[in-house]
Design a protein around this nucleic acid. Structure first.
Lengths: 329, 329
DNA sequence: GTGAAAGCGCTAACAA
DNA sequence: TTGTTAGCGCTTTCAC
């Protein structure tokens, strides 16, 4: 593997000139530039980026901490991040924290050890130290901590949930069950508040029996619905994500409950599959790739020393598909 | 940010000793080790891994080239890779090639520039140079080139496809449609051969009208089925992956064709969703995480200078679910 | 067991 | 415009 020295020798110039010819071609005469380029081509030189990184003390790498890469929702966001990273000559180091704080911490340490320049976290399951405002270049996406002084890209969870429930109320539902996520998660608190807002606007009392907790997995949606349906009589169901909505749909069908005739269902996220179930799932669309793109742009700005927006809210959209109809009397 | 020098000064030893105390604690006296540890703790020293990498000329990073990270099939494999990487102190750099050779090449260059130690490619869409046997530490998973002298982890595509079609024949189907992938892809050629093997064993002529090409996407499955059903009369359908099977299922339902009563469907992969459709999708299970784990173990062995298996075949399994029944006469 | 010194491959002042 | 020089922060002989 040739080094910059070899190229310098071949081209009959100094290593500094080789470096310049490659990094700032305009700072070098046409003639020497060509000599250098020829030498580079001849010996197949490829600069050792580790050495460059050391010298410039930057790694041109960003870490993305994901709680679960096999979750399509996150994968789509990662894709958006990837696009922006690439366009700005950053690499993306994938950090699947598998929902553990220890893993997340390990990935954050990559910045401390200079292996990465910054972090985008798609999870709030981060070490406590971080929340006290450590000075790492960090951008949060989707999730957030209240009062966490870090640029965050997210949606209006409360308003979006409310819009979904408004829709169910509009078409006549009054008994609306709700499968939530883990309630220690701020975005779940927000979505629940949105559900309550809608009922209160219509002067409908909020029945605590209407709720069951899930953990965002298909399976938890399935079992939450089976529990819920035993103690709450409903004509419609609002789920905090699509996976749980699909699980609930499966459970309903198994119980002989017809969707949507006997039970309308609304999800949240708009995964690819939401369109393909039968009936298609009405859901709150989160523009996943756009969230990723925005988060990455924000981090890039931070890394360039710019002042980034503290909070960017990405608009959502209620997608009405076949899974909801007016309740039969 | 403190460096090793600062620690050395604080502990009253040389930088060499600090380095030893951290890397080879046994080569240092108990007493100095404690001094060093105290100093490290006090100033919050974290070694600059870039400098270490430069010195040792390794990066402890592997690149995974994925044609599409938002495809759950690949995401699951990445997860397996991630586990092994972590256990061996490697980081995983995510390379989403978005099905382009140029992107793939850019990611492969990370090895040349010493930013990564090795590559796992989940796509065969690689630059031509690579196929001539460049000397990069590379492991292929899932896909392969015939005669490509590189360790490969994959399944028996031909046998697995044949087993699926055998099953359809066993339960009485004789008119079996087939939605393939892009036929320039060797694994598609293999799966098609498996389909043909099965029919030939039963002395059933292979009708070219039975095939339609897809591109592994849901949408292509949907439209391929609409085309296929116009020129081929079938009681069963074999799809080269689950996504296309789901697309075909959707199209069938829209056309008023009852699944499985009027059309049995078999997929390939066993995505999470295959279990959750209604009816559940009968499919050839590829142990995705295991493929990732095996590929990563193979690469680690290569990187350690060991001789890796040239070809590892991971067994598949036919999962029978509700989407197949015997044809009604 | 420990320290001095060399150097991984590159970039960036500073001179010329 | 170009070369000289001095490191970036670490590991690793090689002496002691």
């Amino acid at each position: 593997m040739p080094t910059i020295k070899d190229v310098a020798k071949m081209a009959g110039v100094s290593t500094a000139t080789v470096s310049r010819a490659m990094m700032n071609p305009e700072k070098v005469s046409e003639k020497t530039r060509l000599k250098v380029e020829a030498a580079v081509a001849e010996c197949g030189f490829s600069p050792n980026v580790i050495a460059r990184n050391l010298r410039r003390s930057e790694s041109k790498t960003i870490v993305v901490i994901v709680p679960d890469i096999s979750n399509m929702f996150f994968a789509n966001i990662v894709r958006g991040i990837q696009k922006v990273a690439l366009a700005n000559a950053y690499k993306v180091l994938l950090g699947d924290s598998i929902h553990t704080v220890e893993q997340a911490k390990a990935y954050m340490d990559l910045v401390r050890s200079k292996q990465a320049d910054g972090i985008i976290s798609l999870t709030a399951e981060l070490p406590a130290e971080v929340r006290q405002g450590s000075e790492l270049p960090l951008v949060m996406a989707c999730e957030y901590f209240a009062g966490f002084p870090v640029p965050t890209v997210r949606i209006d969870n409360r308003g979006s949930a409310s819009r979904a429930v408004d829709y169910l109320l509009d078409i006549g539902h009054r008994q609306i069950g709700c499968i939530t996520g883990p309630m220690e998660n701020p975005i779940c608190v927000d979505r629940k508040a949105g559900y309550q807002d809608s009922l209160q606007k219509m002067n409908i009392a909020v029945d605590e029996q209407a709720f069951e907790d899930g953990d965002f997995s298909f399976h938890s949606g399935y079992s939450a619905f089976r529990r819920l349906q035993q103690h709450f009589n409903m004509t419609a169901l609002f789920c905090f994500n699509d996976m749980m909505a699909l699980g609930a749909m499966k459970a309903a069908i198994e119980l002989g409950i017809k969707v949507p005739q006997q039970l309308s269902i609304v999800g949240f996220d708009d995964l690819l599959f939401a369109e393909y179930t039968d009936p298609g799932l009405t859901t709150v669309r989160q523009p996943q790739e756009e969230i990723g793109i925005t988060a990455a742009n924000t981090l890039v700005k931070v890394l360039q020393g710019g002042k980034a927006n503290q909070d960017t809210i990405i608009p959502t959209q209620l997608l009405v598909r076949g899974s909801c109809v007016s309740p039969s009397k």
